[in-house]
Design a protein around this nucleic acid. Sequence first.
DNA 1: TTAATAATGATAATCATTATCAATAAGAAA
DNA 2: TTTCTTATTGATAATGATTATCATTATTAA
Lengths: 154, 154
Amino acid sequence: MPWKDGTGPPWLQGKFKGCGYRLTVPRQAILDVLNSTTEHLSAEDTYLKVHKVHPAIGLTTVYRTLELLVQTGMVFKFDFGDGRARYELSEGPKGIGHHHHLVCTGCGRIIDYTDFIDEEVELLKRTEKGLSKKYNFKITNHMIQFHGLCEKCQ
Amino acid sequence: MPWKDGTGPPWLQGKFKGCGYRLTVPRQAILDVLNSTTEHLSAEDTYLKVHKVHPAIGLTTVYRTLELLVQTGMVFKFDFGDGRARYELSEGPKGIGHHHHLVCTGCGRIIDYTDFIDEEVELLKRTEKGLSKKYNFKITNHMIQFHGLCEKCQ
DNA sequence: TTAATAATGATAATCATTATCAATAAGAAA
DNA sequence: TTTCTTATTGATAATGATTATCATTATTAA
């Protein structure tokens, strides 16, 4: 669904317009919110932040837009086990902001880490190559999480 | 919540009784179901399978038991993006059954792979060690998923 | 066996996410 | 620009997975 006409290489992150979608005020506003935080916003979190600036934008639109952003590869969607999805602007696996997560199963705290990312990404690259070939699977994204207990919860 | 009295090293996978929980018929039945499949069962899937043998066991108990199994580390809980949680018996990172997942974002198909697992796990071990130290985080589990399009969906 | 407590199951409640649909906004064509 | 066509939006209702409640039953300890 990333490209409306069904053509083009899907799952590449790219500009809205390049994908045939309109870059409307609500969509821009939602992107702005995502772009100005390092938090792991839920749909409602996002809605509340958007709402402060654009009270007319509804929750439904936020859900819809986030989903669209996920589909076009501009946003990553995570499940940290607290019953609601979390969204983060993706900056590409080699992007500055790329990181992985530590998830505390005690209190739900999320720690972003970038340590070892290079090694991890390098291994993942190799793994991806092998898996793509073996399973004829077009890999567009990866996800690594460590689960455990944070300092406080131990 | 793994140990009822709050003591003992949490998150270690272990026997029910060792954790102070009763190994009842429903719990045994649920474990049996999980142990006799390679599918990624949802709570309801599990309920239906359990129900065939033990019609008296309710859905609530299945949910409760699965959660308990997750908490004690005997079962892994996954979110593959289809709106319901999936459960798999964990056999430990070095266990025979340990694998990672390819998730097709087109049709939702899940492919288990064990290729490259050794390399991956070895790197994860090292990473874990570093992260544990730096963030004082007690890591008990990891999760790797690759997202993309399967053969059919490309 | 009995007492104390944990576990169960039917039911209702919760709550994140989706579907619906009329109203509006954006881009294309004239 | 003005009109036309279609995409987008937002309020509302609906869905559906998961949880909370609570009386009943099963399990262990005494």
